[in-house]
C-alpha cells in the first residue's frame, strides 16, 4: 500500500505534539493533546482507505475508481464521539476550576496517606511526649519544588511546630536538637 506523504507527515506531527501535550500537568493542555491525538487517528484511518478516488456511487463511473467509503464513515463516527467527549471534558475542567481554582491534576489524598503511613507507624513506638512533632509533615506532592534561595523566608518546620505543638514553640532552644533529628528520621 502506498501512503501519501501529505497525510503521513501531519499525522506524525499531530501524534507527537498530542502526546507531548497529554503529558503536561495542566488540564487545558491535556485536552488539547487529546484533540490532536484524536485527529491524528482520524488521519490514520483516512490513510488506510488507500489512494483517493472519485465519489462512490457517482453515476457512470467504474467501481474501481471509487474512494473507499468505509473509513470515511468510521472517521465521521469517531469525530462525533471525540466532539462529545471534548465537550464533556471542557465542562469538567471548568467545574474543576470553579471548585479548586486550579488547572492541574491533583494527587490523590488517599495515595499520599498510604505512601506516608509506614514512616509514621515505624515512629509510633518511640514517639514519646518529649517532642510532639516527630511525624514530619508529609511532603505535599502538589507543592512547588522548594526554592534554593538561601535568603528564603523561615523554613516550613516553624509553621508546623507552631501548629502542632505549643511546647516546641515555647521552648525552641531545648527542643531544637530533637526536632532536627526527628525530622531527618521522619523524612526517610
Amino acid at each position: 500500500m502506498t501512503v501519501s506523504l501529505a497525510l503521513l507527515v501531519p499525522m506524525a506531527v499531530l501524534y507527537a505534539s498530542g502526546v507531548y501535550l497529554l503529558l503536561e500537568k495542566s488540564m487545558t493542555r491535556v485536552i488539547l493533546g487529546i484533540l490532536l491525538i484524536g485527529n491524528a487517528t482520524n488521519l490514520l484511518l483516512l490513510m488506510m482507505s488507500g489512494p483517493a478516488g472519485v465519489a462512490p456511487i457517482a453515476d457512470g463511473k467504474e467501481p474501481g475508481a471509487f474512494s473507499d467509503p468505509v473509513p470515511q464513515a468510521l472517521i465521521l463516527t469517531a469525530i462525533v464521539i471525540t466532539f462529545a467527549v471534548s465537550a464533556f471534558l471542557l465542562a469538567l475542567v471548568y467545574r474543576s476550576w470553579r471548585l479548586a481554582q486550579e488547572d492541574e491534576v491533583q494527587v490523590d489524598e488517599e495515595d499520599v496517606a498510604v505512601a506516608t503511613r509506614d514512616t509514621q507507624a515505624a515512629e509510633e513506638p518511640d514517639r514519646g511526649e518529649e517532642s510532639s512533632e516527630v511525624s514530619a509533615p508529609a511532603e505535599d506532592p502538589n507543592a512547588p519544588p522548594p526554592a534554593e534561595d538561601p535568603n528564603a523566608p523561615p523554613p516550613a518546620e516553624d509553621v508546623f511546630a507552631d501548629e502542632e505543638s505549643g511546647d516546641a514553640a515555647e521552648l525552641p532552644g531545648v527542643d531544637g536538637v530533637e526536632e532536627s533529628t526527628g525530622d531527618t528520621e521522619g523524612g526517610r
Binding site: I34, L44, L45
Partner: peptide, 16 residues
C-alpha cells in the same frame, strides 16, 4: 480516552 484512541488506531491498522 487514551485506550479508546489506541483501539481506534488499531481498528484503522486492521482495516488497512
Amino acid at each position: 480516552l487514551l485506550s479508546s484512541v489506541l483501539f481506534l488506531a488499531a481498528i484503522a491498522m486492521v482495516y488497512g
